[in-house]
């Protein structure tokens, strides 16, 4: 092949590559742009300050405060529960076990596999779990399903940070007579705090945006859930139901709700990015 031909092939592919990258980045901008442009005109104060009045889904008065609060409660509870499991797992495979030990490798593998399981399957499993322990569709059942969904996301994100803690830091703490537990809680957790917070935010973002896992488990209600055993509305499902109605004015509200959800996700994303950067700056690693 002549040299000019070789160069030409490279140019063609370079154009394709840049084009692809533009498509990838452009699609994000297009999605956010569309949702914002369509959503903001339909937004009003009542939407975020009121619960649905009778006939809301037919186009009557009200708002989706029930879903906003429901989502925050649900994702908050789920994140707390997931944290309760993630932290010990991550500390155990990084501090008590050698990082390359069979248990550590297997646990990471299991977490990765869990990460790949679709959220609708978490929903179905959550439903089975719920029936087994005699729970009805409720905030609590939703929290359990979403916590399971968040567990691998949070644990893997934390693991990425905790595994960077140098052995020398552990050794230094151990040589002062600290037990592993004291080292884990006082030294490692503190050292990794910003990274852990980032992991929590990422998991929270995933939890608040997920619809398929709560479909089976959380139920839906026009009231703001006041207790764990009451059914809870969530923002993604509210969007889904509003869009599913045949009334244009209700569909408009779906766009507005989608804009609100996107906004929440963006804020969480930026927060976690900001924390992540702060972590890099202050880190001694």
């Amino acid at each position: 092949m002549g040299f000019r031909q070789r160069k030409a092939e490279e140019m063609v592919f370079k154009v394709l590559m840049i084009g692809s990258t533009v498509i990838v980045t452009g699609s994000l901008l297009l999605i956010i742009g569309t949702v914002v442009v369509k959503g903001f005109p339909a937004m009003n104060l009542a939407m975020i300050t009121q619960t649905p009045k009778g006939g809301y889904y037919l186009g009557k008065e009200g708002g989706i405060l029930n879903a906003i609060v429901g989502s925050l409660e649900l994702a908050g509870g789920a994140t707390l529960l997931a944290l309760l499991f993630s932290l010990p797992i991550v500390l155990y495979i990084n501090l008590y076990k050698r990082r390359k030990s069979r248990l550590a490798v297997f646990t990471r593998f299991a977490l990765d596999v869990l990460w790949g399981i679709p959220s609708i399957v978490y929903g179905a499993f959550g439903f089975i779990l719920m029936m087994r322990i005699g729970l009805r569709t409720s905030l609590l059942a939703g929290i359990i399903a979403v916590a399971l969904l968040e567990l691998p996301i949070m644990a893997r994100a934390m693991d990425e940070v905790v595994r960077l803690v140098p052995h020398s830091l552990q050794d230094a703490s151990a040589s002062l007579g600290a037990t592993k537990l004291e080292t884990a809680l006082h030294v490692v957790t503190r050292q990794c705090l910003p990274g852990i917070i980032t992991a929590i935010l990422i998991a929270f973002g995933r939890g608040i945006g997920d619809a398929a896992s709560v479909l089976y488990t959380a139920g839906f209600s026009d009231r703001i859930p006041g207790a764990l055993l009451q059914p809870a509305a969530t923002l993604p499902l509210a969007i889904f139901f509003q869009l599913g109605t045949p009334y244009p004015e209700v569909q408009e509200r779906a766009y507005a709700s989608a804009a609100i959800l996107t906004l929440i996700i963006l804020v969480i994303s930026l927060l976690s990015r900001w924390y992540g950067r702060k972590f890099q700056k202050n880190s001694i690693l």
């Binding site: 990838v24 945006g209 993604p236 499902l237 766009y255 989608a258 959800l261 996700i265 994303s269």
Partner: peptide, 24 residues
Amino acid sequence: TIKPVVDLLAGIPSVVFGVWGVLM
């Protein structure tokens, strides 16, 4: 610059993708 954009894309809830799909 682009890597965070890709991460952000991964974080967009699927319902929002759905709404966008319906609209566009």
